[in-house]
Simulated scan of single mutants.
Amino acid sequence: MHKLLLPAAGLLLSLPLSTTVALGQSPAPDSARTATAAPQTMFKLGLDVAEVTGSWYGFAVPLYLGAERPLGRHFSATVDVTSSIGFRRKPQLAELSGSLGVRYYYNQARRQRLGKPTQRLGGTYLQAQFTNTFNRTGLWTYPTEGPAYFSHQPSAELFWGWQRRFGRYGFVDAAAGLRLLPNWSYRNSPEPRYRWQPEIGLRVRAGLAF
């Protein structure tokens, strides 16, 4: 009798495994594992081409350094630093700015539904950010020697933009939008009045991303 019971017990023990395979409870696909993987931070180094300026007295080249980290599927946090170097007789710091922002890549889900390729931290986006800018005064006037003085200019910004990776390390990030700058006015009042002044913003950044 025990010779008959042993095969039957083995058959019963194998039923849960065979039932699991039959019901399609297979290991998670690669796409699911990719979706739950730890996010990666993208670092960017290049030029802010739209901020290049020049005149009879000299020119300034803005160097750009940024970092962007995903926040969920379609959002990301950004940190940007731009240092504009002015050239007149010798290189001098003309402007320094730092920004903190949040981006929403709104077109990725639609492209995925249509079967089109998408990039991590790439595509069209909306961005809100706050920027602090320090401008050097008197850089383009004579003389250029002496202590450096900087004026502080904060701004709140809203941009619509497009970012894309090219090749293994290249990137382009172009955006246009609206800046709100604080403006102190003494008009019809002995005390300064504080108000926000709108301004069109444009940026075109290109360089290396890794």
Rank of each mutant, 00 (worst) to 15 (best):
G123C: 07
G161R: 04
S189N: 09
S76G: 02
N107E: 10
Q112S: 13
S151R: 15
T131V: 15
G101K: 01
R111T: 07
Y125I: 15
E191F: 09
Y105W: 03
L100I: 05
G167H: 01
V79D: 09
V81T: 02
V79A: 11
F130L: 11
A176N: 09
F171L: 03
N132H: 13
Y104S: 05
F171M: 04
S155E: 08
D173R: 00
F150G: 12
V81M: 02
F134R: 07
W184D: 12
P147D: 12
V102S: 05
P192T: 05
H152D: 03
Y125T: 07
F166L: 10
F150C: 14
R111D: 10
N183K: 15
Y106S: 04
Q129M: 08
R110D: 10
Y125M: 05
T118H: 05
Y142V: 10
L93G: 04
Q129G: 03
W162C: 07
E199T: 11
G146H: 09
D80M: 01
W140H: 11
S83P: 06
L93F: 02
G86K: 05
G177Y: 01
L180H: 03
E157N: 14
R120A: 06
N183H: 13
R187D: 05
Y194P: 13
G161D: 06
R179H: 12
L180K: 03
T118W: 07
Q119V: 02
S189C: 14
R187Y: 06
G207P: 04
Q129K: 14
G177W: 03
H152P: 00
L100V: 07
P91N: 03
L93P: 00
P117I: 05
R89V: 14
K90V: 13
S99L: 13
N188S: 11
S84V: 02
W162K: 13
R193N: 02
V79W: 07
A156G: 14
E199C: 12
G146I: 09
P147Y: 06
P143C: 12
L126V: 15
R187G: 00
A77G: 14
N183P: 13
L158T: 09
G123Y: 04
G98L: 00
S151T: 14
R165F: 01
A174C: 11
Q163K: 10
W196P: 07
A148W: 02
S151Y: 14
F150Y: 15
S185W: 14
S185T: 15
R89P: 07
R120G: 06
G115F: 00
Y194D: 10
Y186A: 08
F150M: 12
P190H: 01
G98R: 07
E191L: 14
Q112P: 05
Q129T: 03
S151W: 08
Y169P: 01
S185E: 14
L202T: 04
G146L: 12
W140R: 09
A156Q: 09
R111L: 15
R111H: 12
P91L: 09
L158K: 06
R195Q: 14
R111C: 08
A128N: 07
P117V: 10
A206E: 02
A77Q: 15
A176K: 11
E191N: 14
G138C: 05
P192K: 02
Y104N: 09
F130V: 11
N188M: 06
V172N: 00
I200T: 13
P182T: 04
Y105G: 03
